[in-house]
């Protein structure tokens, strides 16, 4: 394990991460990072500096030079083979099982670089005691049917707390201002694949399905029996969330 520290690296600025990684890249065949907002930010920059075609968001490794990745918001999967000797790859975290913990690699300090290009001004992080959306075992997501930000939190927060779940939202709910942007599950938000995904008042637009259809078990609660979400749900309840969610809270005990 190599440890590099600098002021800009502390804020994961792409220019500094790139300068540091490119400086180390000679000794390596591949550079990998998760396809998180951070990874997506700096990995293409690293690839261009190395004159390598980056491979984004892989969901399967076929061989040392061939990978599978979703395109068209997950409506197609492409298998691509690279001719670059060095590989620069981002990995969709939900597509692979995590490595076992308990390694004991020695930590070696290397020099961190400030790039002096963009500078950090500030940040606003959402504080929450709930699990992180991308890593949660259970996700409860609310849609536009919830009608207001107050109702969204009044319905979703207690259910999430009871289940130890993260809270997600459809883009429609985010656009309507019911939920913060970083709750968004879908093509344009986060891609999640928890053991259990509960969609409440979400119709199931293509762009939402792209973000959650790899969940192990999907539950949909919607009063419209024809909502597309039921086509991907393992268990569906046709009914008004106003009655179903309190019943669910009771049934969970």
């Amino acid at each position: 394990m190599l440890l590099a520290e600098s002021g800009e690296l502390g804020h994961t600025l792409a220019e500094a991460v790139t300068a540091t990684v490119v400086g180390l890249a000679d000794g390596y065949d591949a550079v990998l990072a998760p396809a998180s907002m951070d990874g997506k930010n700096y990995m293409p920059r690293i690839a261009a500096k190395l004159d390598v075609a980056p491979i984004s968001d892989i969901v399967e490794v076929v061989s040392a030079d061939t990978f599978v990745r979703p395109i068209y918001a997950g409506n197609a999967l492409e298998t691509i083979q690279t001719s670059d000797a060095k590989k620069v790859i981002t990995v969709r975290p939900t597509a692979f099982a995590p490595a076992a913990e308990g390694g004991s690699a020695p930590v070696e300090t290397v020099s961190g670089t400030d790039a002096g290009k963009a500078s950090f001004v500030g940040e606003e992080m959402v504080k929450s005691d709930r699990p992180e959306l991308g890593a949660a075992k259970i996700v409860v997501s609310g849609g536009r049917a919830l009608g207001s930000a107050e109702e969204f939190h009044a319905v979703m927060d207690p259910l999430a707390d009871k289940l130890g779940a993260a809270v997600g939202a459809s883009r429609a709910a985010v656009d309507a201002g019911y939920a913060p942007n970083d709750y968004q599950v879908g093509q344009t938000g986060k891609v999640v694949a928890p053991a259990l995904y509960i969609a409440i008042g979400i119709s199931g637009a293509i762009q939402h399905l792209a973000g959650m259809k790899d969940s192990k078990v999907i539950v949909a609660i919607n009063k419209d029996a024809d909502a597309p979400i039921f086509q991907v749900a393992d268990y569906g309840i046709v009914g008004d969330y106003k009655t179903v969610v309190p019943e669910l809270m009771n049934a969970l005990g």
């Binding site: 409506n75 691509i80 001719s83 268990y235 569906g236 046709v238």
Partner: peptide
């Protein structure tokens, strides 16, 4: 630099049951 070997449709998920 890249060769597309194939493009396939993702596995479809079938509708489950209503409870």
């Amino acid at each position: 630099r890249l060769t597309v070997r194939k493009v396939t449709a993702p596995a479809t998920r079938s509708a489950g049951i209503k409870v």
